[in-house]
Simulated assay, not measured.
Amino acid sequence: MDAKYPYARGNFFSAIRILAASSESIQTRLIEANDSILAVTIDEFEGDIELKLKFARILDLLAVDRDEIELVAVENAAHMSDVQAIKLAELICEFFYELG
């Protein structure tokens, strides 16, 4: 059985591995996971509005400003509280599960 979104699934798996396999702060782990997450585009979920909306929510939490999304995502993650960072990490894990 082929995965429906192999590129997104691979990138989110990498992000989850980074989130799980480090002793760094949750904010630092989110910063390190940004590259994998931001490599996925919202267009990849064109046929699935629910996944598209959930991915957009993750992007909004990572980087509200779209001009320099990578820089903003790092800045946002660095200044998140532990509770905010954990919530975002949970959304990332749930999204990966839904890519099933």
Rank of each mutant, 00 (worst) to 15 (best):
D2I: 15
A3L: 15
K4G: 02
Y5Q: 07
Y5K: 06
P6H: 09
Y7M: 08
Y7T: 07
R9W: 08
R9S: 06
G10D: 11
G10S: 13
G10R: 11
F13H: 04
A15I: 03
A15V: 03
A15T: 03
I16W: 02
A20S: 14
A21N: 14
S22V: 03
S23C: 02
S23F: 11
S23K: 12
S25D: 07
S25L: 13
S25W: 08
Q27N: 15
Q27G: 04
T28H: 06
T28P: 00
L30P: 01
L30W: 03
E32P: 00
E32D: 06
E32F: 05
E32V: 00
E32Q: 07
A33D: 03
A33W: 05
N34S: 11
N34V: 01
D35S: 12
S36R: 09
I37F: 11
I37N: 06
L38Y: 09
A39S: 15
A39F: 11
V40E: 04
V40C: 10
T41P: 00
I42K: 14
I42E: 09
E44T: 14
E44V: 13
E44K: 06
F45D: 01
F45Y: 04
F45H: 02
F45L: 02
G47D: 15
E50T: 15
E50K: 14
L51G: 08
L51H: 10
K54C: 02
F55S: 01
F55P: 00
A56N: 08
L59V: 03
D60F: 14
D60L: 11
D60M: 08
D60H: 13
L61M: 12
L62Q: 04
L62V: 02
A63D: 00
A63P: 02
A63N: 09
V64Y: 13
V64S: 09
D65C: 03
R66W: 07
R66T: 12
R66M: 09
D67W: 13
D67V: 13
E68Y: 14
E68Q: 07
E70V: 09
V72I: 12
A73V: 05
E75C: 02
E75F: 13
N76H: 11
N76Q: 12
A77Q: 03
A77V: 03
A77H: 03
M80W: 09
M80T: 03
D82Q: 07
D82V: 10
V83G: 01
A85N: 07
A85T: 06
A85C: 07
I86S: 04
K87E: 15
K87Y: 14
K87P: 00
K87S: 14
L88N: 05
L88D: 04
L88F: 07
L88P: 00
A89K: 11
A89G: 11
E90V: 13
E90G: 02
I92T: 03
C93V: 12
E94Y: 12
E94M: 10
E94P: 00
E94R: 11
F95N: 04
F95T: 06
F96K: 10
F96Q: 10
Y97W: 14
E98S: 10
E98R: 13
E98L: 14
E98T: 06
G100I: 10
G100L: 14
